[in-house]
Design a protein around this nucleic acid. Structure first.
Lengths: 343, 343
DNA sequence: CCAGTACTTGACAACGTTGTCAAGCGCTTG
DNA sequence: CAAGCGCTTGACAACGTTGTCAAGTACTGG
């Protein structure tokens, strides 16, 4: 039973088999009224024996760009669980809307990002969800001007009047810092991503603002930023903690950073004396002792809301732009509640 | 500068603007020879001012199903890092081939799986990569018979003559078990996924075969299987270890299971006396003390090879089916090298 | 019994693109 | 100078589908 690599059957093939016009087949496929039961029967049986399936490309093409039944999602790296959870959130909403998801990783490279967006646009996706890379994106700007529905996710683009969903990076950093202050810490070190990353900058700002508001000076030696892998963060943190003056608490403002810092604290055996609070939840947070107190993000929720925002725009091109800033309460696990020297 | 939600320009629009026939525009777009420089100039300038982009749907439609420039990937859950890393591997290969990736999560539900495959087929993807769910899939079988290129990933389907890429579950389990035997353990407990999952069954078989070959009886009380979340595995493991007789070593045969078991060992303070080896690497493996010894899988490698296998079939429909079983050496981190009572 | 109506069916154009073909032009060549 | 050739250009069909319209049939009511 080896069928040759045969052409997929089309409306015409079905029509031929059922001895009707191909338009009638179209009607049956689309469950239109006013087809005689007899013909419906014949057509349906022909469809079944031929294994006919309508070609969505032709369908959407005919219906004139109106809807291609797919959306595009440009993220940084799908292998990063933060982004893949977002993707899952998007997928769940898209599925409800009968829509497929095209996704691609930009690795934070604006050129790659533009290639992806272009490829999605060439497929005439109905809309885009984009975690923007740093830098200019002429393609994205052009599409925004054209009126292509775009929702920005997690990071804020230069253009300001856009649909946007992101975590409350600033507010989260404020709460994290205040949490440490409330537990008697005045000498807090900030470890975080390179500040050219938008969210990282916001988190640092939140840290500094809270310290300043509490009347505490922030020594620049207490701010460590850069763009590294977890392993490098580990080494960096060990070296830092072996240095001349140790802080009494650390705010690790990104998930990779948190992993590295936690490893360092354990390595040096000071995990019970130096407090730590992280931004972004990590798998190991509840496994280590003490558990790591964090300000979590809810990636699947971010994805869900971004997708809902996109579909809401698809439903109403005219509605005003929306921004959805998601706050999340601190998850207390122990590491952030180690008491500091202050009263 | 608010453009109305204007139609995207087509070949004809460009032709009108450049005062040529639309066929000439097509030629310029496709860089065909034998167009006069003057017309090329006019057309290119019209393309630039209008922001024209060819419609890939129409292109592929015209070129007759031959290639839609997209492949479909049906996985279990993209939020699971194992699968999202696979996706990344696929994406990297697809990108090189100028191909987009449609993906969707089946949650292991065969109905959902079939809906996804059907949706991909309706878009006329060039091929499919599928992590099959348990159970019958009439859609998949039909497509296989039709000759649609399909590569199976990670799990083996009932159909046997297919393209397949997976880890060496059996061999890995053998090596893991032997590793524990070599370190003086004879009383080993197996914790793993429900055995109706194909890979889980293979791993259990590997465990049993190795124990038996070593002349050791496997008490059924030492085999704990089921389908749970990490939290439940934690509770289950704690209860098990509080029970009447403790094993001297544990083989946790899946990543969620490993997390739960590790937490339980730490909770009971026996992480230095009971050996553990896991199947599948986990993030926290090198963070906890002792580090967790594992038989890793290489998800991005699985994805890469599956994609390469798919494209190789797209290039040669006639080639015989291939199976690619990936072995990986044990990563030694400490937990698996805790010595047991045997000589 | 005839006009009018409601239903059923099919012919044809269109979506945006590429492949095929032929027409028009200027040039070479015998 | 006529025949032939090569280059450039456009008209038209086709991909697989849906929308529009008109033709055909079988009713109904007056």
């Amino acid at each position: 039973m080896t069928l040759p690599p045969s052409r997929r059957p089309t409306l015409r093939d079905v029509a031929l088999a059922a001895e009707v016009s191909f338009k009638t087949v179209s009607r049956v496929v689309n469950r239109e009224d006013n087809v005689s039961p007899e013909l419906v029967r014949r057509v349906e049986s022909a469809i079944a024996t031929l294994g006919y399936r309508p070609d969505d490309r032709a369908r959407h093409l005919r219906q004139g760009g109106s809807s291609s039944g797919a959306i595009g999602f440009v993220l940084v790296d799908v292998a990063n669980p933060f982004f893949s959870s977002i993707l899952r959130g998007i997928e769940d909403v898209a599925r409800k809307m009968g829509c497929l998801v095209l996704s691609g990783s930009s690795d934070g490279d604006p050129v790659r990002q533009d290639q992806l967006i272009q490829a999605f646009i060439d497929r005439r996706v109905d809309g885009l969800i984009v975690v923007p890379a740093d830098g200019e994106s002429s393609v994205l700007e052009h599409e925004l001007l054209r009126g292509t529905p775009v929702v920005f996710l997690d990071l804020e683009p230069k253009q300001h009047n856009v649909d946007l969903v992101r975590s409350d990076h600033f507010g989260g950093a404020v709460r994290a810092t205040q949490h440490l202050l409330d537990h008697g810490h005045g000498d807090i070190a900030f470890f975080g991503d390179a500040t050219k990353v938008y969210s990282a900058g916001l988190r640092l700002n939140g840290f500094i603002a809270t310290m300043t508001a509490a009347g505490l000076a922030v020594n620049e030696h207490r701010i460590v930023t850069g763009h590294f892998e977890p392993d490098s963060w580990y080494e960096l943190a060990v070296r830092y903690l072996m240095g001349p003056s140790r802080p009494t608490a650390i705010f690790s403002a990104q998930n990779f950073v948190t992993v590295g810092v936690t490893q360092a604290l354990h390595q040096l055996g000071v995990q019970h004396s130096i407090a730590q609070i992280g931004f972004d939840d990590v798998d190991l947070a509840s496994v280590v002792t003490p558990g790591i107190t964090v300000v979590p993000q809810h990636p699947s929720e971010l994805g869900r809301r971004a997708a809902e925002m996109l579909f809401s725009r698809l439903g109403d091109r005219g509605r005003p732009m929306m921004r959805d800033i998601i706050e999340s309460p601190i998850i207390v696990r122990g590491s952030g509640e180690i008491l500091g020297p202050l009263p």
